[in-house]
Design a protein around this nucleic acid. Structure first.
Lengths: 202, 202
DNA sequence: TAATATTTAGCACACCCATGCGAAATAGGG
DNA sequence: CCCTATTTCGCATGGGTGTGCTAAATATTA
């Protein structure tokens, strides 16, 4: 697939290197061949981004169905595994994360990519929120938890941790990443949203 | 300053647009003039990154001295303000965050930038850890907290939240960002590292 | 087989890029 | 003023890029 070629080039040399020429060479095709399917450079990138979003969503959602379905004793472990899908714990997830960051960052200055990036982000955000809600419904989390905010907080944590682990791998070995997830889940389990607001005043 | 020109161009059009020509035009100079100071394109970018790191560190550390010094009654509020320096709550912080993300991402495929990016990241990470440690020493946080891990977790949260807020501003209004910070600090205050590990087994 | 559609390939163009180099302008010290 | 050092400038070169367009090759259908 030509999308794979884009992904390889972007992963290896960054999005700015994803020229028609480089992609064509990586795919073993001629420039004109690629341009037969994509009328312009933007369309190629949009397609590659769509394909990325499709794969990530598919993989993570498949993982999610295991946990969101019926109640199970090892829910906690499955939850950790699900969240671990957002982190670069192996080469596959590392590359997917790199791709996502490259495209998402590029979307800031390339309006053509923005819609697709937004959609992908939303899908994953919803998944995280659902996971939190599911854990709450299963009784593992305090009932008074603000699921929306906690979902956003958890997603932000995963995103930031994944980002840093990609940029500075030596500083964030897999075990440290897992420990951070565990700590966060622990704090969710043990903390109610509660009445902290009064205490907070002083 | 020529560094400002780089920053403006990168903020507006992304790092890939920071060519000698664009930067020179933004600075009101000729290409050759810039090349008199920087022997190549890489050196220009490295300098701009150094300058960015310097400014960010300076600003955030100045904010930090207020809080790390003596004990004060309104420590919680100052802590929130300090952490808010990592989020795009106004135009200045927004732009600084954009610059940081652009450079940090580029450092992945440009070894020339990696050292400087690493150093800047480390400085800020240390600051966050010190903040957590300070809060712990001041008695606001449980004594059995793992300061290192909590510092990393907090920094990851800030980084991820900042990233998403930059990419999808409409989804992350300032008040939501502040609420996430408050929630996180609340959870830190109320959660011990404790003996969750046994419960976790099942 | 013959005619047609689909896919692949390659060339030409105009544009932007980093860099090398020498000339022009400006500033500073004698 | 003159001489020198510093700074600014612009041209030339070689390479990369997206895109328009046409020709060739292949597959599909009649």
């Amino acid at each position: 697939m030509v999308a794979d070629a884009v992904h390889v080039v972007v992963t290896r040399n960054g999005l700015e290197a994803a020229s028609l020429r480089n992609v064509a060479e990586e795919a073993g095709l001629a420039i004109g061949s690629i341009r037969h399917y994509f009328t312009g450079h933007d369309e190629l990138l949009i397609f590659a981004l769509q394909e990325l979003g499709r794969r990530v969503s598919e993989r993570v959602w498949a993982h999610a169905e295991t946990i969101l379905g019926e109640a199970r004793a090892d829910r906690r472990r499955h939850t950790e595994d699900l969240l671990a899908e957002f982190l670069p714990l192996d080469a596959a997830r590392h590359d997917e994360l790199v791709l996502w960051h490259e495209f998402a960052m590029a979307a800031r200055t390339r309006p053509a990519l923005l819609a697709q990036a937004n959609e992908t982000h939303q899908i994953l955000q919803d998944l995280v929120i659902r996971t939190v809600r599911g854990a709450q419904a299963a009784g593992g989390l305090p009932a008074d938890l603000d699921v929306e905010v906690e979902g956003i907080r958890l997603r932000a944590l995963l995103d930031g941790l994944g980002m840093q682990a990609v940029l500075f791998p030596q500083r964030f070995p897999p075990e440290l990443q897992r420990e951070v997830i565990r700590r966060h889940l622990d704090s969710l389990v043990r903390t109610g949203a509660g009445d902290v607001r009064e205490e907070r005043q002083q």
